[in-house]
Nucleic acid binder design. Structure first.
Lengths: 343, 343
DNA sequence: AAGCTTCCGGAAAGCGCTTTCCTAGCTTGG
DNA sequence: CCAAGCTAGGAAAGCGCTTTCCGGAAGCTT
C-alpha cells in the first residue's frame, strides 16, 4: 500500500480515477444505479491504490442513519449477560451491524442515559437486557427516553420483562420455576428455602412466585422467613446462604433464583462444612454453560440463552410493527447431581 | 416534553432561542468562547424544550473524530475476556468513551477486518485483547491494518503479547507458570502432564515453556507425550483431559494452561471416576472469579484482570509516545484445594 | 431518418455541526 | 475626547458523503 497519508477521501479517489465524485460514490456503495464497467474498474483501482476508507460519520449523515446497535446489560462480566451478549454480537455481524456495549453495573438509572446517547449517535436500535426493577421513577425515565428514541426512528428491543415500550423477548420465569418446584417435590424434598435475589427485581420475583406456586400444588408452603433476599450475584448467593445457615431449622433443599447465586451458595455451604449434596440439596436457574463444571453439578432450569439475543436482533431487523411484539421462551428443568432423590 | 417530532437540530434550537447557530453551538458544547449569561440561558431552555439531541455523526464530522473505542476480543462469552471487557467498559465510561464490541469467535483473521471498520468509523482507539497466533500471514495483515489506522490518527493498544505495533499490556505468563511449577514441586508432586492449549497460541506456549522451566530447575522434565494440545476452551480442556486418561501411566498433577480448560478437565476426570483432588491434582492459570466456586477449588496463577483493561485504556488516553510502550503485570500463585500437599 | 426512450456521467444541494473570521458595540487609557 | 483594545454575536466555510436533478449520447421504433 502506497502512502495514503491517512487522509484519503472520496474526492481523491474520484480525481485519481478521473471521474466525478458522484460516480465514485455510486461505484463504491454498490448503488442502485449502474455504472459503466470500465469506470467501475477505474474507481475500484483508485480506491484500492489509495487505501481508501469511507468516513462512517459522513455516510451516517448523508444517509441519515447508522448501522450501530446499542447493547445495554447490567454487568458484562456476569456469565448470564456475557452469554447473551455473545449471541447478540454473533448474530449482528452477518447483518453488518456494529455493536456498542454498555454495562450499567446494575445501576439501572443509567439505562436511560445510554438510550439517550444512542439516540444522539443515530443508532439503528437498542437491545436492553436484564430485569427491570419496580422503581416507577426509573421506569418512567427509561420509558420516556425510549419513546423519544423510537420517535426519532430508532428501534428498541428488550430481553426480560414486557414493561417497556419495546419488542420484548420473554423468559418464562414463572412456569420454569413452577416446573422446577414440582420436580423437586417429586424427588422427595419437602422443606425448602429460597435465595431470592433483590426484592424489587421482576425476574427474581417471578421465579420466586412460580416456585411457590409449584410447591403449593403439592400443599407445601415456604415461610417468609425461609426466603432470603440479597444481591443477584455470586457474592449475594454466598451471603444469603451463609445467613440461611444461622437459622435453627435447616431446609432440605435450597432454591437459588439464578445459577450464579447458586454456585455462591454452594461455596458458602461447603465453607461451613455442609456435605453436598447429601446433607443439603441446591437448585438454580438459567443453566449457565460456564458454570456446568461445579460440583455437585447444578439442577437448574435451562434457558435458551443463545436464542435470546438472536430473537431480539430479529425484532430490530424486522419491519416495525404497529404494537410491540413479544416472543416467549420457556425453560426446561435439568436435574443433576445437586438434588439427589431423597431416599 | 413537547412534540420534538423526532427531528430537532441545532438550527431549530437557535431559532427558538432567537440566536444564531454559532451561539447555540457555543453554549451547548461548553466551548472556550464565552457567551452572555442571558443568551446562554435562553439556548439552554430552548434545547430542553425541544428535547434536543445533538447528532453524533455530525459532530464527529465537524470535529474530525469520535469518542468511540473499539474492543476486540476472541470470545466475549469466555469469562476471561468478559472480565477484561468489563474492566474496559468500566474505565471508559468516566472518560465519555463509547465502547464498540467485536467478538471474533477465535477467528483471528477477523481482527484485521474490525480494525479496518474502526478506521472507517473514525474511532479514537482500539483495544485488541487476546493471544496472537504465530501465523505470520495473519499477523502481517493485522499489522498493516493497524499501521493504516494509526497513520489515520487512531490509537491502538493490545493486551497479550507485544508483537503488534501498539502499546501493549503484557501478562507475565512465563514467570507465572514457572512459579506455579516450583510451588507444585514444593508440594511434593513429581509426575506432571500439561493440557497445553493450541500449539500456535503464544500465551499457551509461554505458559507451557515457563512451567517446564520451573520444573527443570528441580530436575523434572515433562515428556512430549504428556503435553496435550487442544482448544483454549472448557471443552478443549475436557477433551484433552479425557485423552490423558487413556494413557497407561497417569500423572500426579495436571497443569491446564488456563482456568477454563482446568474446570473442563475437572469434569472430565470426575466423569471417569477419578477421585479429586487426592487421586489427581489439577492446577490452572488466570484465577477467573466466576470459576472460584468449583470443587476442588483451583490452584492457579492470579492475573489482575481488572487492571488490564484499565491500563490499556490508559495507553489510549495518554499522549502518543514515540515508540510503543509496554506495561507488564505479573501473576501470583494461589494454592487451593485442587493441589493438596503430597503426603 | 426523426422522434422516443434509455442509459450513464456530472454538477450541486444538502445532512447537522464546529469554528474561523468579521464586525458592531463597549470599555479604557492617555 | 478619541484611538486602541476587548468582548460577544453572527455569517459562512467547511467536514465527506449520498442523491436528486440535468443533459448528452446512444439505442429503438416506425
Amino acid at each position: 500500500m502506497p502512502r495514503g497519508s491517512g487522509k484519503v477521501n472520496l474526492v481523491d479517489v474520484a480525481r485519481q480515477a478521473g471521474v466525478s465524485l458522484a460516480t465514485a460514490s455510486r461505484v463504491l456503495n454498490g448503488s442502485t444505479r449502474s455504472v459503466g464497467a470500465d469506470l467501475r474498474e477505474r474507481v475500484r483501482q483508485a480506491a484500492a491504490n489509495l487505501d481508501y476508507s469511507p468516513s462512517a460519520p459522513a455516510q451516517a449523515m448523508a444517509r441519515g442513519g447508522t448501522d450501530v446497535v446499542g447493547l445495554v446489560v447490567p454487568d458484562i462480566s456476569d456469565p448470564y449477560f456475557s452469554t447473551i451478549a455473545a449471541s447478540v454480537v454473533r448474530h449482528a455481524e452477518p447483518h453488518g451491524l456494529i455493536i456498542t456495549l454498555a454495562s450499567t453495573e446494575r445501576r439501572f438509572e443509567r439505562e436511560a442515559e445510554y438510550v439517550a446517547s444512542l439516540r444522539s449517535q443515530q443508532a439503528r436500535g437498542v437491545v436492553l437486557v436484564g430485569s427491570r426493577t419496580t422503581n416507577e421513577e426509573q421506569l418512567e425515565a427509561l420509558r420516556a427516553e425510549l419513546d423519544a428514541y423510537t420517535a426519532a426512528g430508532g428501534r428498541a428491543a428488550a430481553i426480560g420483562q414486557h414493561i417497556l415500550p419495546a419488542d420484548t423477548v420473554i423468559v418464562e420465569n414463572q412456569s420454569g420455576a413452577r416446573a422446577l418446584a414440582e420436580e423437586l417435590v417429586n424427588l422427595g424434598y419437602r422443606r425448602f428455602a429460597v435465595l431470592a435475589g433483590p426484592a424489587d427485581l421482576l425476574t427474581a420475583r417471578d421465579r420466586l412466585a412460580g416456585f411457590r406456586e409449584g410447591l403449593r400444588r403439592h400443599g407445601i408452603e415456604v415461610a417468609g422467613r425461609d426466603v432470603i433476599n440479597g444481591e443477584f450475584t455470586r457474592d449475594g448467593g454466598y451471603e444469603a446462604a451463609s445467613e440461611l445457615l444461622e437459622r435453627e431449622r435447616a431446609p432440605e433443599c435450597v432454591f437459588a433464583v439464578n445459577d450464579v447465586m447458586a454456585v455462591g451458595a454452594l461455596s458458602a455451604f461447603r465453607d461451613r462444612g455442609v456435605r453436598l449434596p447429601d446433607e443439603l440439596a441446591v437448585a438454580g436457574f438459567d443453566d449457565i454453560a460456564s458454570l456446568r463444571d461445579v460440583w455437585p453439578s447444578l439442577t437448574t432450569v435451562r434457558i435458551p440463552l443463545e436464542r435470546l439475543g438472536e430473537q431480539a436482533l430479529g425484532f430490530l431487523l424486522d419491519e416495525p410493527a404497529e404494537r410491540s411484539r413479544t416472543r416467549r421462551f420457556s425453560g426446561e428443568v435439568v436435574v443433576r447431581a445437586s438434588t439427589p432423590p431423597v431416599s
